[in-house]
Every structure is written in C-alpha cells, then in structure tokens.
C-alpha cells in the first residue's frame, strides 16, 4: 500500500501541490466555521452555565456583569445538594423504570415488527397504517385514556403502572420493522428450512442481524424515559416513587426554595445528567450510526 502511494506521489506531483484557495473560498470557509462555532456555543452554553453555576455562590449567580468562573469554586454544593433530598432514590427509580421500559419496548417492538414483516395476513397494511397514525398523535392526547385505564387496573402511583403504560413504543415498532425489512429474506428462509421456529428466527437470526438498530432504539428510548417528566408526574404521587425529573422539580420548590438556592439546584441538575452523559460516552458510536443510518431525529 505504501509503495503504491509513493509511486503515485512520484508520478503525479501536481496532485500534491494544491492550488492556493481564492479569497472567496477563504471567506466561505470562515463564515461556515463561525456559524458552526456560534451554534455549538448556543447549544452548549446552558449546559456549561449549569456546570459553573453549580460551583458558584448565590451572589455570584446574580452578579452583574456576570463572571464565568467563580472566585472560589464551591465544590461542597454537590454534597449539600445530594444530602438535602433523596436523590439516590430518585436516580434509582429513574434508572430502574427506564431500563425495564426499554426491555419491554424492545420485546414488544421486535414481536410486532416480526409479525409485520414475516407474516402475511389480512389487514396487515391497515394495521401498519394504524400504527403509523398513532405515531402522529400528540402524546398528551393519550394521557386521559391511559390514566383511566391505569386507575381501573389499580396501577396508579406504582412502578408497574409507569412501566406498563410505556411498554409499547410505536416509534420502536416502526424503527425495528424498517430494520427487519433490510435483512435479506434468504437469511430467514434458510433458518426456516433448517427447522428454526419463529421464536428462534426472531431472536437468533433477525436480532443479531439488526443489532445496531436495537442498540440505537434502546439508547433513544432510555434517554426519553430518563428525561420523561409530564406523564410520570401525573401518575406517580408518593415521594418514594419519584423519578429524578420529578425529584428535581420538587427540590426546586422545596430545597432550592424557588430559586433562592440556585447553586444547589444547579448541582442537583449536574448529577442528574451524569448517567446520560456516561451512557452517551460509552455508546456514542451507536447513537451516531443509528441516526445516520435511518435519518432519525431524536
């Protein structure tokens, strides 16, 4: 390989000597970079502001003109915030319900997608169209019927209620169906002829063939569920069932005393996003791959 490159260099020196960029090209490139930097800063600024505010004093937060870095970083804010509310429990509740929901959603989406792609039955197109139609519905429009159902099942204010009411993801069905459709049909046929049952084909052939889609969907869904606020706040009432999102809100009202203790609120926010940041760092390859592959927007 090196040899080939060397030969190419020797034989075609003109490839190596780039023409100097024109003035217009420089301007375009600079403008592009300025725009990108601007948008990056706008996107990242609230996050950065949260980080630095967490180690400021209340006075420093309200100071005008504001300073970016505190005179003396207040690292103890984190400990104080953590101790002033049961954040550990909230975090556990969120992680536990989000994980359970994702597992249920993967299971239901895979089963449904299998039926939609591998079986031929009457009303199949109608069924898929209905699923898509439900996807178009605003989430809030399902709150009342879902609330009524949960209350009749006696599942309000419980983990089960939270998990079951989110156990099926329409987006997941659609996403996994698209992935299954990409699998060459010979793969499934080969498994069938070799004696594999539908169950085996789903989990031992289709799942490994579409692993990246399953991972991407799991990540997207996990983040959504971890950040979910409105629906859990409608069905969960006892403080020991609170998710981190609700816990933060509660802390803002009580411990944070409606913004009087901003540094503590900010510190609490910081450790609330830590699990998601960790997840993103571990799995960013899949995030980006999934979004690029299927044109999904969060």
């Amino acid at each position: 390989m090196d040899e080939v490159v060397a030969t190419a260099k020797y034989e075609t020196p003109q490839v190596q000597t780039k023409e100097a960029p024109t003035f217009l090209q420089i301007v375009k490139k600079t403008a592009r970079h300025i725009l990108l930097i601007l948008f990056s800063v706008i996107t990242a600024f609230p996050f950065l502001w949260m980080l630095v505010s967490a180690i400021k004093t209340t006075d420093e937060i309200w100071k005008f003109p504001p300073s970016f870095w505190p005179a003396e970083p207040q690292w103890q804010n984190f400990i104080e915030a953590w101790n002033s509310a049961p954040f550990g429990l909230y975090m556990f509740n969120s992680l536990f319900t989000a994980t359970a929901i994702v597992l249920f959603q993967i299971f239901s989406a895979a089963m449904m997608a299998y039926a939609l792609t591998q079986f031929r039955f009457k009303g199949q197109k109608f069924l898929f169209a209905s699923i898509l139609a439900i996807y178009m519905l605003p989430a809030a429009s399902t709150y009342v019927p879902s609330y009524v159902i949960l209350s009749k099942l006696n599942m309000l204010d419980s983990y089960q209620g939270m998990i079951i009411s989110n156990a099926v993801s329409v987006f997941g069905i659609f996403f996994i169906r698209q992935a299954f459709m990409q699998v060459p049909k010979e793969m499934v046929e080969a498994a069938k002829v070799d004696g594999a049952s539908h169950w085996t084909i789903l989990w031992k052939v289709l799942l490994p063939m579409t692993k990246s889609s399953f991972l991407t969907f799991s990540l997207i869904s996990f983040v959504q569920m971890f950040n979910n606020y409105l629906w859990p706040s409608l069905i969960l009432k006892s403080q020991d069932k609170y998710l981190i999102t609700m816990g933060l809100r509660q802390f803002f009202i009580e411990g944070g005393a409606y913004g009087i203790k901003w540094p503590l609120v900010m510190a609490a926010n910081v450790f609330a996003v830590v699990p998601l940041l960790l997840l993103f760092f571990v799995a960013q390859k899949w995030f980006i791959k999934g979004i690029n592959d299927r044109g999904v927007k969060g």
Binding site: A190, V193, D194, P208, M209
Partner: peptide, 20 residues
Amino acid sequence: LEPMKRGMSMVFQSYALYPY
C-alpha cells in the same frame, strides 16, 4: 406445512450464511 416442518435442506444463490 410450514417450511420448518417439511424436513428439507436448501442451498441459496446468495449462500444465506449468518454473518455473525
């Protein structure tokens, strides 16, 4: 009878080997 119950084997043009 479903394919899995017919007791046959098959070789495909595209080989249909499981890549993983």
